[in-house]
């Protein structure tokens, strides 16, 4: 990482100009398909990427999106590798999806993965006190709910890593396009087991915004202002509630950003998640450095 500015520019152009680009850059260590709860097979595994060296390093638990019914851990493979090259251990996880993984089962899985990472901190060179969580869309909801309501009794996992005890929330949360309030939002009836009129208490309990209180971990929200699926107003309301309770929360709104399409520097549209745009990366790494720090 000690290259001069001009050397970095030259390297970036050289790397960018070839399909062999991933071979460029700092190295990282990979642990593939690590099971955090053996009871559910490949539904509860994670890929762990870490910097070379003994650490202990801060870590990021990465939770993919997909409407709680699709997607997989490889969505965050490249971002996790980038974090590993930048001094963070990054664990991209699978969790049970609907119908098996209806709320709160997937929340329990995410907390179990968090507990596993802390339990095996020395093995993966993680500082257990500095584990953040980062997710997008459904994954944004999951990182928000484990950040806001890890101690909710129905969220406590019964997996071996957690030992039947409540799991402490992550030390910081990056929530991309996260549904923070299910009330009046009708995209999650399958996930929540029915419509709001049928299960109003579940809609309240599953909504991160209803758990806002003092003492929450810092949150960074990343949303596109043209996101028709998860409107950015949800993040703004959550931020306002958190700040009013004395918490640390901020919002990055990507101008022209949708749920899956964002405007790039040339003014064209790219198929890309809002939390992986260049401006989101800048905000995210600044947030992670400030809240959980990097190489000691």
């Amino acid at each position: 990482m000690g290259r001069s500015f001009s050397a970095r520019v030259a390297l970036a152009i050289a790397c960018s100009a070839t399909l062999l680009a991933p071979a460029c850059g700092d190295s990282y260590v990979e642990h593939a398909k690590v099971s955090y709860d053996p009871r559910f097979g490949d539904s509860t595994i994670m890929d762990i990427y870490g910097p070379t060296g003994d650490g202990p390093f801060p870590a990021v638990l990465m939770i993919h999106g997909g409407s709680w019914s699709g997607g997989n851990r490889t969505e965050y493979s490249d971002p996790a590798k980038r974090l590993a090259r930048s001094g963070y251990v990054a664990a991209s996880i699978e969790y049970r999806l609907t119908p098996a993984g209806k709320y709160p089962v997937d929340v329990q899985d995410c907390l179990c993965a968090l507990a596993f990472l802390r339990l095996h901190a020395s093995e993966y060179h993680v500082d257990p006190a500095r584990v953040a969580a980062w997710g997008y869309s459904a994954g944004g909801h999951l990182v928000s709910i484990i950040g806001a309501a890890a101690d909710e009794p129905t969220h406590t996992p019964d997996c071996p890593a957690a030992g039947g005890a409540p799991v402490a929330p992550p030390a910081a949360v990056i929530a991309g396009a996260a549904p923070e309030d299910f009330r009046g939002w009708d995209w999650a009836s399958d996930y929540l087991g029915g419509h709001e009129s049928e299960r109003p208490e579940i809609y309240v309990r599953a909504s991160p915004i209803t758990h806002v209180r003092p003492g929450m971990p810092p949150f960074l929200f990343i949303n596109g202002d043209a996101d028709l699926i998860v409107p950015p107003d949800m993040a703004r309301r959550m931020r306002d509630a958190m700040v009013a309770s004395g918490n640390d929360a901020s919002v990055l709104v990507i101008t022209g950003g949708g749920h899956l399409v964002n405007t790039n520097k040339t003014g064209a549209w790219d198929v890309e998640l809002a939390d992986l745009t260049p401006e989101a990366w800048v905000a995210a790494i600044a947030f992670l450095d400030r809240t959980v720090g990097r190489r000691p």
Partner: peptide, 16 residues
């Protein structure tokens, strides 16, 4: 193909 990089070396390069 896009390569993002941090001129100060804070973030490792990223290829998309």
């Amino acid at each position: 193909l896009r390569t993002d990089f941090d001129p100060r070396g804070r973030l490792a390069p990223f290829w998309r």
